[in-house]
Design a binder for these strands. Structure first.
Lengths: 205, 205
DNA sequence: TAACATACGAGACGTTGCGTATCGATTTGC
DNA sequence: GCAAATCGATACGCAACGTCTCGTATGTTA
């Protein structure tokens, strides 16, 4: 049974009250630099050293606040493109889902695809970051989709005993599978196929 | 229009007839070393230098025949665990699929999971390797599943107009999604849920 | 048998990015 | 004023990369 250590508070992000406070300028400059480098060179070419250079900041200032490149990118990216998840109500679950995935595919194809792939790749090598990725980004998207599905269930468009989590695994799974392997396009046609398949199944009705 | 260069044959793997031939001993020792290191230290700790050390081989001998760590691991792994894909015929498509995914999940959970995740991560950063991964490993598994599905279609257990490729994206997608994110177990329960969902759909029947 | 072509093990080499450590200067609370 | 924590800057050792060059070995060709 580990006894609590009075020297180290339970939460590490409890800022001390004395000493020079964190520079908000540097904080912002770092996140801006991350976005600029992501846009320009891509996720792979982005290194801690390049961020420090671009932001005009010491490396230690980055390492002080973020544990890894992936964590840094995730914060910059989440702040940037977050909470733009559309939750349309187009009257039918089918239409809502098609719209949800059409817009998700569009963003992935136009902008965020490479970064998402990079984040997933880093998560493979860094269990701690995997947890953050799951809880910050993935969980948010799953929750959004869950909301759409739940609304459909209330309207009686889903079996009452449908397991929404499995449904989410199927839908997002197919999305990531194509995103990662790049064997086929993420387009509106695929969105419709996806939604149709999951709603109707593949057996004759 | 690029004119053909007489010095470089169309296929780079046309071995010249003169000079010292490739050492089969070294070739084997390298692949063995890869498997031993994968087993012992895992995919991440495996480096070209560690393979050379373990195999008692010069680095150049590795670089001469393989372009990347991922390519090397893929060959070692494919040779090792390949073509053991079971294609059961248990009478019904549902049973066949459940068996297919139960055994796939079992192998991923017991043995190959970490290596597969590593290969996928490397493919994100290396488009050339992504193509190899797709064509050597992914395509093989897709073909196996396709065969199972096709047999079910012939038996009338699938809609005649079912798009089997989309179905495969859904099934393998969910597998990879859970394998990569590790938010839930890959167990026989999930296999049954997966198969049931895809066959029956989520709307009331 | 001699010349040639290529592979071999070994390891030096320059490069990159990592993460840590230290510097003097700065900015806050006490 | 002093302690504490930050800042930008940069030096450091480390690990692995991928290239290159040794001297040697092992084939084919003439």
């Amino acid at each position: 049974m580990p006894k609590p250590d009075p020297d180290t508070p339970a939460k590490a992000d409890v800022r001390p009250l004395r000493g020079r406070p964190r520079s908000e300028d540097s904080h912002g400059a770092i996140l801006d630099a991350v976005l600029a480098l992501l846009e320009g060179e891509g996720y792979r070419a982005l290194t801690i050293e390049s961020v420090a250079r671009q932001a005009g900041v010491g490396k230690q200032t980055i390492y002080r606040w973020w544990k890894s490149k992936a964590e840094l990118v995730l914060e910059a990216y989440a702040n940037h493109a977050a909470s733009k998840l559309p939750l349309p109500d187009k009257g039918s679950l089918r239409a809502d889902l098609e719209w949800f995935f059409c817009s998700a595919f569009k963003r992935l194809t136009d902008i965020s695809g490479p970064t998402m792939r990079g984040l997933m790749a880093d998560a493979v090598y860094d269990p701690e970051f995997l947890e953050i990725l799951r809880e910050v980004l993935i969980a948010k998207r799953r929750a959004a989709l869950y909301q759409v599905l739940e609304r459909g269930r209330v309207r009686g468009e889903l079996s009452p005993d449908a397991d929404l989590d499995v449904m989410i695994d199927l839908l997002f799974g197919a999305l990531w599978y194509r995103l990662l392997l790049q064997h086929a396009k993420l387009d509106s046609r695929f969105a419709k196929q996806l939604v149709g398949s999951v709603l109707d199944g593949f057996t004759p009705r």
